[in-house]
Structure formats: structure tokens, C-alpha cells
Simulated assay, not measured.
Amino acid sequence: MSELLEAGYRRCAELTRRHGTTYFWGALLLPREQRRDVHTVYALCRLADDIVDEPEKVDLSVPRDGTPAERLATFRTWFFDALAAGSSDEPVMAAIVDSIRRRGTDPECFGRFFDAMAADLVQDTWPTWDALSNGYMEGSAAVIGEMMLPVLEPYTPEAMEPARALGKAFQLTNFLRDVDEDLDRGRVYLPREDLERFGADPWLRRVTPQWRELMAFEVARNRALYDDARPGLAMLPPASRRCVGTALVLYSRILDRIEAAEYDVFAGRIRVPGREKLGVAVRAVTVGLPA
């Protein structure tokens, strides 16, 4: 492998370790080549997401000039040009393209992903669960499962729908955990129909009885998505099963902690401690995944 690619894969791993700790811990259970490919998928999504959500960040791997919309459009064009050419002079993009081409990931996935990122720049609320789930989350979450699947080497194409469900489950957990951060960006990802049904107002940033009822409803919806995803574990080879199963368990435990905090997602970001992540990963290797 060239020095350029080695540098790119190292940077992708650094991005995953710093920002996607659950993905990072899960990927540790994979063989080296698969682990690197998980990192590249995460890095591509992280860099695009940062252009949208944290435009003040400047990473060597993304365009620096222009508005967030202009930078995202430039990044999108740069990515697809590099993919068509089969390489890039920039290390992170070179690693991303190398991984995608080796895995044979459908390029159409990335078009849906960039469309969803662009939607974040023009839309800050969603009217219904259907609009959120089958609209925005199709390109921001379900498609991530599709991108990851070639890396995980499933036994059967039937693993696709569980992978898509898991992508949505992970993102809904993020939405529930990050309500306060998203408000700071002027966004509310909880469907308006649900807010109106329960009479809950996130902008109060207070835990009211209405807020608890809303969040209990959303947590139940989230757990149903994890249930839809769980059958896919049996469709993966052992190392991939441990990787995905570990991520599923750890993300599910964020919901447990939200409940334990009585749905107060305004007082600070709810996290699963590092020692607990390590414990789940070790258990996955030694005795199997916990329920």
C-alpha cells in the first residue's frame, strides 16, 4: 500500500476514534482490512456532517471556502470526481475511494447521502414520522447501513433491510440524545405531529409530564427499530456479528440512560462510559453478546 493510502487510512481511524467512539469500539472486533473500511465510511459521513453542522471546523480533507451549502456541493463534486477517477491526491479521499472500489459499494448510496446532508441546510423541522423516516432518514441513516454492508460481508442479500433498520435506529437514538444540541442549531428532528400529540415543547428545555410522555413514545419506537435490525446479526460472519452486535448493544444502552435520567436530555449529553464500552466488547469476544 502506498504512503498516501496509509496516511489516509490512519486519518480515517483517527476521525472515527475521536468522534464515533461506538463505531470505533465495534470495529476493533473486525479483522484489520474490514476495520479500516468501517473507518472510511465513518470518515466520509463525518466530514460531510461537519460541513453542515459545525462549519467553523476546518479539516484538511474538506473545502475551506464558501458557505456551508457551497462547501458541501464542492465536497460532493470532489468525492464523485475522485470516485470516477479511482483515486485522489488527498490522503483521506484516496482511502475512501480505495475502500469503496474494493468493496463494490453502489455509488447511488452516496447521492442519497449528500442529498440528505443538503436538506439539513434548508429544512429544520419535519411534519410527520413518515416524512422524517422515509424522507430524510432514508439518505442520512438507512443508506449508512447500505454503505456498511459490503464491508461486513453478509451471508445473504436479505441482510439489507436489517442493516437499513439499524442505521435508522442509531440515528433516532442520536436525535433523542442530542435534542439540546440540535436546538442550538435551530433544528428539531422530533416530528411535529408527535410534539402536537403530546403537547410537548422542546424549546422550553424542561422536563415536563408532556415531555416525558413524548420521549417514552419515541424510545419505544426506537427499540422497535432495533428489534427490526436484530435478525440481521445471524446473517453476518462471526467477526462482523460481534462488531455490529456490540454497536447495537451500546447504542441501545443510551436509551436506557435516557430513561434513567427521566428523559432529561437538556442537562448534558448522555453517554455510555468507556469502561462499559470496553466491557461489552470484551464480552462479545469471550462469551457472546449480552441481551
Results as ranks from 00 to 15, higher is better:
Val52Phe: 06
Arg46Pro: 03
Thr16Tyr: 05
Leu183Phe: 07
Trp25Pro: 00
Thr125Trp: 00
Phe80Gln: 05
Val244Ser: 02
Asp89Thr: 11
Pro290Gly: 11
Ala284Ile: 04
Leu233Phe: 07
Glu158Thr: 13
Asp180Ile: 02
Arg18Ile: 08
His19Phe: 12
Asp178Gln: 05
His19Met: 06
Pro162His: 11
Ser133Glu: 13
Asp115Ala: 14
Arg76Phe: 01
Glu213Pro: 10
Arg164Ala: 03
Val280Gln: 03
Ala281Ile: 07
Asp184Thr: 11
Glu196Ser: 13
Pro202Val: 00
Val62Lys: 06
Arg103Ser: 08
Glu138Ser: 14
Tyr189Ser: 10
Leu29Asp: 03
Ala165Pro: 06
Val265Phe: 09
Val151Lys: 12
Glu70Val: 07
Arg103Gly: 10
Tyr155Asp: 14
Trp129Lys: 05
Tyr251Gly: 11
Glu262Arg: 09
Arg177Tyr: 05
Arg46Gln: 06
Asp106Glu: 03
Ile96Ser: 09
Leu233Thr: 04
Arg164Tyr: 02
Cys45Lys: 01
Lys57Val: 04
Pro231Asn: 06
Ala224Thr: 13
Leu30Gly: 05
Tyr136Asp: 02
Asp59Thr: 04
Gly139Phe: 04
Arg212Tyr: 01
Gln123Asp: 06
Arg35Ser: 09
Ile258Leu: 05
Leu29Ala: 07
Glu218Gln: 15
Leu60Asn: 01
Thr77Ile: 01
Asp49Phe: 09
Glu193Phe: 03
Ser240Trp: 02
Ala73Cys: 00
Asp227Leu: 10
Phe24Asn: 14
Leu29Phe: 03
Met215Lys: 12
Gly274Lys: 14
Gly135Val: 01
Glu153Trp: 02
Arg64Gly: 15
Leu4Gln: 10
Thr74Trp: 00
Ala116Asn: 11
Arg36Ala: 08
Leu15Ala: 04
Ser87Phe: 04
Lys57Ala: 10
Gln34Glu: 11
Leu236Glu: 03
Gly288Thr: 04
Leu30Trp: 05
Trp211Thr: 13
Asp53Ile: 05
Arg221Thr: 14
Ser140Asn: 15
Leu4Ile: 10
Asp115Thr: 15
Glu56Trp: 09
Ala131Trp: 01
Leu233Ala: 06
Gln123Glu: 09
Asp81Arg: 12
Phe113Cys: 06
Met215Cys: 03
Arg102Cys: 08
Thr286Phe: 07
